[in-house]
């Protein structure tokens, strides 16, 4: 007996409300547009790495700043997306793609940690009117997510918040975070929130809550060290003169 194809309404799944806010799944990350001054290293061809894939202790850190009643959460997030790079400290340069902070877009990062170069990036995993989340690739210092959001508290004040849920990606980073990296990272996100607040004419302190969600080290992921972006960036920087000479010889 001939089988009839199922009616379209039975096969097509209804798109949920959040469909437009999420990045599409890709096996390997691809950087489509690179600003001329940015170094695109340690992102292309890598997989995403979430809070489950790293090595170190898993921390949830929540940074908050009060912005008062003169601005809505939507306005805060709109400005935050637009000026994301400008709010970073000078040693932490972000290069968004031309499309900006939108689901699936890449943001290249050319940073310097205690004088050591780190060339990496993040993917915009989720973005709606009140928040956006970036996720790290393999080799990034951290493995996890950072969510940048704004909301109205019970008193009607707008609060800007950064929440990270991440662990160090490998043993080298874990050691670095325990020695100084963690404090340095807290300084970076505090700077970002202070810059955001300054844009709206607010000068308030930033609060920070830290929770160790998982104190265990994930020794099964010790091999992540192979992709360490910091080590690879250093090799790239040290070998720059050699690449220049090689380039001249090939002419």
């Amino acid at each position: 007996m001939e089988q009839k194809p199922p009616a379209e309404e039975h096969t097509a799944q209804k798109q949920p409300r959040d469909a437009a806010y999420w990045a599409r799944h890709v096996e390997k990350l691809k950087v489509s547009e690179v600003p001329a001054e940015a170094i695109n290293l340690n992102v292309e061809g890598r997989r995403t790495a979430g809070a489950l894939q790293g090595f170190g202790q898993l921390w949830q850190k929540t940074y908050r700043i009060y912005l008062g009643t003169g601005v809505t959460p939507e306005e805060v997030v709109r400005v935050w997306k637009e000026k994301f790079s400008e709010f970073q400290p000078p040693q932490n340069r972000f290069y968004p793609s031309l499309a900006g902070v939108k689901p699936g877009e890449m943001l290249l990062i050319n940073a310097s940690m205690k004088g050591m170069p780190v060339y990496t990036g993040v993917i915009v995993l989720y973005a709606d009117e009140e928040c956006f989340t970036v996720m790290t690739p393999e080799g990034h210092p951290e493995s996890g997510w950072n969510t940048f959001s704004a909301y109205q508290n019970e008193e009607g004040h707008t609060v800007a918040q950064i929440q990270s849920l991440a662990r160090a990606n490998d043993p080298i980073y874990e050691m670095g975070f325990r020695l100084a990296g963690s404090t340095e990272q807290e300084r970076i996100w505090t700077h970002v929130l202070k810059s955001l607040a300054a844009h709206f004419g607010v000068d308030d302190p930033v609060s920070l809550e830290k929770v160790c969600v998982d104190p265990r080290l994930q020794w099964s992921n010790v091999g992540n060290v192979w992709n360490n972006a910091s080590v690879r960036s250093m090799i790239y920087a040290v070998s720059a003169p050699g690449r220049r000479i090689f380039g001249l010889l090939r002419r």
């Binding site: 959040d18 806010y21 979430g50 489950l52 995993l125 928040c131 997510w145 849920l165």
Partner: peptide, 11 residues
Amino acid sequence: YMNSSGIGLLV
């Protein structure tokens, strides 16, 4: 509906 905080909860 699920946003990125929902993923954090699952972790």
